[in-house]
């Protein structure tokens, strides 16, 4: 079936029904016009993923993971890239929160939802970014992490916020090279020359167009205040 994801027409050739249910909200009304890219999982790739998985996942789940990886590896040449991050929308702007698994992306974004009325999660784990003139655009996708938080929408990306757990709250602006170092562990690097080179070019452009911060934070409203004020430039008023 053909799906509309991140402004692209994507043909997904799945064998298990899992992916059809999973991507239902993104099904294209036009199933005949040409597509931008297609994804299909080879037996080799499927069994490699299945053998490497720590849990006994269903075949549909395994195929689904492989399909997204296959899609994402082709994105750079289409001016897009996968970002491992939680992207929030607030007041029409997008903010990405990044960190190793377990650093509290969902905890911190959960606090934004709690304290900032009107904020919503565009994608809780694996949004697609598209390079655009002034800012990157972050897109929701069917793949949004184990909590399944996200929606089929897009938002201009105004900030990158790397998270670290701490005893107090502190936010600092990162230099381009510091941002690059941290960003590398949150992107997918394809292995073909064209897409690998384009990924590095997109990463450079992302850093040039999006201010990056390091937030050392606790689980508190003060942590929200710190990231909100740094990234929006506005004063946070406690409720």
């Amino acid at each position: 079936m053909i799906y509309d994801i991140a402004g692209l027409r994507i043909l997904i050739e799945n064998r298990c029904k899992y992916t059809e249910r999973f991507c239902a909200a993104y099904l294209s009304a036009d199933q005949t016009s040409p597509v931008h890219l297609s994804a299909k999982v080879t037996n080799e790739e499927f069994y490699e993923e299945k053998n490497a998985s720590v849990q006994d996942f269903s075949d549909g789940y395994i195929e689904n993971i492989c399909l997204y990886r296959g899609i994402c590896r082709q994105l750079p040449s289409l001016n897009r890239m996968l970002l491992h991050a939680a992207v929030l929308e607030y007041d029409g702007n997008g903010y990405a929160f990044l960190g190793k698994s377990g650093t509290g992306k969902s905890t911190h974004t959960g606090l934004w939802l709690k304290y900032l009325d009107g904020s919503k999660i565009v994608n809780g784990d694996k949004p697609i970014l598209q390079a655009a003139k002034e800012h990157f655009i972050a897109y929701g996708t069917p793949w949004m992490g184990k909590e399944g938080l996200g929606c089929n929408s897009s938002v201009p990306l105004k900030g990158l916020c790397f998270l670290e757990q701490a005893k107090t709250n502190e936010i600092v602006r990162l230099s381009p090279s510091e941002a690059a170092t941290r960003l590398f562990s949150q992107i997918l690097l394809p292995t073909d020359e064209e897409n690998a080179a384009k990924t590095l070019e997109l990463a450079d452009e992302l850093i040039a167009k999006t201010p990056a911060y390091l937030l050392k934070c606790t689980i508190s409203e003060d942590a929200v205040k710190a990231s909100y004020e740094a990234m929006t430039g506005k004063e946070y008023s406690k409720r």
Partner: peptide, 11 residues
């Protein structure tokens, strides 16, 4: 990237 030169393997 971000002013720093990086090399990645391909193929």
């Amino acid at each position: 990237v971000g002013g720093e030169s990086v090399v990645v393997p391909v193929g």
